[in-house]
């Protein structure tokens, strides 16, 4: 995934076929719902008041942006150039899409981390067996982190 150009309106990215496939998989693969986010740590009254307002909003938002991003990735146009991996694709992101991308990738990371039991630090255990059900969650955490870091380093350079 490589940034081609960016301006105030948005950005253009080059994706390999593999990267495009990975993003579609990430955004369409069914995941367990996130654990409910607390709205207050110090006040149960506030917690109850806010949760009534929040009910379902975060989950709906999450599903909505993932669906939006699948369309964005699927709509990427085939580039003229080709590398060893095959075709390359040019993906156009509006600024809003770019933020949705970061939100969705981070949310997938958080879901995977929660499914793994919130390891601290979040590092793959050396004794992880290939047939462990955790492999999928570690894979999701790793791949989503890689895409997230690429977008951040390209759009927010130090």
């Amino acid at each position: 995934m490589k940034l081609l150009e960016t301006d105030d309106e948005g950005s253009l990215w080059m994706l390999s076929s593999r990267e495009r496939g990975l993003l579609i998989t990430l955004f369409t693969h069914p995941m367990a719902p996130r654990q409910r986010a607390r709205m207050s740590r110090n006040s149960e009254a506030l917690e109850e008041q806010c949760q009534a307002d929040l009910a379902g909003e975060l989950e709906d938002h999450s599903q909505q942006i993932r669906a939006q991003l699948v369309e964005v990735v699927v709509d990427a146009e085939q580039a003229d150039s080709a590398d060893d991996e095959g075709h390359e694709w040019v993906m156009s992101l509006t600024r809003e899409d770019g933020e949705a991308f970061l939100q969705a990738l981070n949310e997938l990371r958080l879901r995977a981390w929660e499914q793994l039991g919130k390891p601290n630090p979040p590092e793959v255990p050396e004794d992880l067996s290939e047939d462990s059900p955790d492999v999928l969650h570690w894979w999701t955490l790793g791949i989503a982190s890689r895409f997230q870091s690429k977008i951040l380093s390209a759009t927010d350079p130090e």
Binding site: M39, S40, R41, N42, S43, L102, Q103, N106, E107, R109
Partner: peptide
């Protein structure tokens, strides 16, 4: 902030 999955809360 929670839409970005940060751990954010509201306190008196």
């Amino acid at each position: 902030l929670q839409k970005y999955s940060l751990t954010a809360t509201l306190e008196p």
